[in-house]
Amino acid sequence: MNIFQGLGNTCFKASQAFGQWVFFVGRALFSVVRPPIYWRQWGKQFFHIAFLSAPVVGLTAIFTGMVLALQSYTGFSRFSAESSIATVVVLSIVRELGPVLTGLMVAGRVGASIAAELGSMRVSDQISALWTMGVSATNYLIVPRLVALVVGMPLLVLCADAIGVFGGWCIARFVLGFNWILYTRETFEFLRIDDVMSGLIKAAVFGLMIASISCYQGYYARGGAQGVGEATTRAVVLSSITVLLMNYVLTSLLFVR
């Protein structure tokens, strides 16, 4: 096979996989409102995906907020613009860092777990067992994870925003010696509801992307333990890249007018 055949083959397989993914997402979205709805699974997945991700997201946010305050101070003090630190910290976190870092952390933690779990179920015939029992794998396995991520991600981003801003506030108050009342007032002075909402919209889209890519990779995993491993790696890499790509697309749609 020459290089052009190889390239053509790869492109063909990639477009085939993309088309299959589009159908997979469409079917899952349609199934959200189509019974049967497995409420218990919805709750279980929400707990595992959203609630248990809160500590890692919180830790990421607090350190990011702290570093941001320190770096802003180092840079802004050179031209006596320390008063802008609060605004820079809050806008950076709420608009960009909160959603993106939460997306990346969740893609790593949850994306890997979803792909590995569904992949193991696929190669050990558990998904076939669902089929033989007349249970829709889409309704039982995919929809609960999709809903948990689309609903859970904005909630996690809200937490990340609050914790990140608090991290910056702590550094300003206890390390840099800022007046905390003034810093708090400056934090909220230029923050608009649109800034928060844009972050939440991004979060929901990232949630949809992470869930659909990870579920797709796991659901169509092939080839035993090695296949599950490869599917898991693909899920994390593709989810992370898609988060960054969609962040650019959404930023250009939401902020550039």
Partner: peptide, 16 residues
């Protein structure tokens, strides 16, 4: 129709 069918898989395929 599937509810009227039972299936025992080669490796049991129990939900772990």
């Amino acid at each position: 129709l599937m509810i009227k069918i039972g299936m025992l898989f080669q490796h049991s395929a129990l939900f772990d």
